[in-house]
């Protein structure tokens, strides 16, 4: 008799832990033949709230890390993903990809992580300025992370889309709560496992599964969320999100991007989730160029 396979329980990822949804709800995920793949957590508003608490708690530490260190951690995520490539290819295939497409998607995801790993300690150099003000002051501007970002990840690009939107967010020092693709949630949960073994502090990335229909309003209305990124195309949801963003002047970004293309590989995506801070300080002027006090 052949050995009975152990099925994986797909749970959500909050604060470095893998709890089940507090609501106890699930939705069945089936393959194209109607076979049950998993019972996926149908995350609730309270799961989201808990995830925001975790993301806020992690923000100070993550944003305060040396940029070089963040760079190494992102690279480490890529390493971990590479080492579990087969698993992700299999999951993508379960969710309907061809073998070739699945492999391509995983490869691109790994490369994208490496790409953004490289930006961690460089984008600040691009977007910082020393501003030659007319008065006797030293004036400089630097980008700083916006804070806690709520992300509703792309629906179709299950792994690559998720990685492409999370990587610029965390490479810039933000922490996030991500809602995974509803129809293809498996590899996002597995990606959480990758994160959990990659030196990413718990709470930096929190991943929920469930429906945008139920959660988009909470994602966009939470007063302790600083920005929201929405990667789907439901017009009603977009409008609701933009309206809710006004509650605390949340930065709202609606992305319609081709996640397979190089279009999503650029530091401007990091800059979207940055605030520019300008500092002034007087410059004393004593010496030969101006001899009086």
């Amino acid at each position: 008799m052949s050995r009975l396979e152990i099925l994986k329980t797909y749970k959500i990822y909050i604060g470095g832990q893998f709890p089940r949804t507090e609501s106890g709800r699930y939705y069945p995920l089936k393959d194209k033949n109607g076979k049950l793949l998993a019972n996926v957590c149908l995350s609730s508003r309270k799961d989201f709230r808990n995830a925001v608490v975790a993301a806020r708690g992690a923000f100070g530490g993550w944003s305060g890390r040396a940029a070089f260190n963040r760079s190494q951690i992102l690279y480490r995520i890529a390493e971990m993903l590479e080492s579990r490539k087969a698993q992700f290819i299999a999951e993508l295939q379960q969710q309907g990809s061809t073998a070739k497409a699945a492999e391509e998607e995983v490869n691109q995801s790994i490369d994208r992580l490496v790409y953004y790993a490289g930006w961690c300690d460089k984008y600040i150099q691009l977007y910082s300025t020393v501003n030659p003000v007319a008065s006797s002051h030293f004036n400089f501007s630097v980008p700083e992370p916006t804070g806690v970002v709520a992300i509703i990840a792309p629906e179709d690009s299950a792994l690559l889309g998720l990685v492409s939107v999370v990587a610029p967010c965390i490479s810039g020092g933000n922490t996030c709560v991500v809602l995974a693709s509803e129809s293809k949630p498996l590899c996002s949960v597995s990606f959480a496992e990758v994160l959990n073994s990659s030196d990413v502090t718990g709470g930096v990335v929190n991943i929920l599964t469930g429906t945008s229909k139920e959660l988009h309003s909470h994602f966009s209305s939470h007063m302790d969320v600083n920005a929201i990124v929405y990667c789907r195309d439901n017009k009603d949801e977009i409008k609701k999100i933009q309206q809710n963003a006004s509650l605390n002047v949340k930065r709202a970004f609606i992305y319609h991007k081709n996640w397979n293309s190089a279009e999503v590989e650029n530091p401007y995506m990091i800059l979207d989730l940055q605030e520019i801070k300008t500092t002034w300080h007087p410059i004393e002027n004593i010496g030969a160029a101006k001899s009086s006090y």
């Binding site: 501003n131 030659p132 003000v133 002051h137 004036n139 501007s141 300008t278 002034w280 300080h281 007087p282």
Partner: peptide, 10 residues
């Protein structure tokens, strides 16, 4: 210093 403004300063 405080309340300083300049066109070059964001």
């Amino acid at each position: 210093t405080y309340n300083k403004f300049d066109p070059v300063s964001p």
